[in-house]
Amino acid sequence: MELLISLIIGLLTAVGVFLVLRGRTFPVVLGLTVLSYAVNLFIFSAGRLVIDGAAVLKSGLATPDPVPQALVLTAIVIGFAMTAFAVILAIRARADLGNDHVDGRLPEQSGEQK
């Protein structure tokens, strides 16, 4: 199971990074979202994986580490705020600058087709 989760984290990181490196805003926002999944899972897994643990204090059951969970819980919400901010920034940039490139201007060399 640990191997599966590691692979998932690795894949999500790789795809997130690749998308974040794109030149247009929408893929970058997607990349940020994917990357935050990866990071959240990573932090969560720092508490080690526990199946059928006690979600709340209960005698007789293994209690999963609550600290990473608390961290990730707020990270998810803050991550949403960040994604939202990035999205709105992208929209605003397009409205003000007339294009959706992350640099706010189209690259000079014509390697790119519309």
């Binding site: 590691s6 692979l7 690795g10 990181t13 790789a14 690749f18 490196l21 990573f42």
Partner: peptide, 22 residues
Amino acid sequence: RDLGLATLIGGVMATISYAMMT
């Protein structure tokens, strides 16, 4: 280039996660 970089860092992250979880 980006694919290479992404693969590298994804691989490293997977390794770290695996090492950490075990």
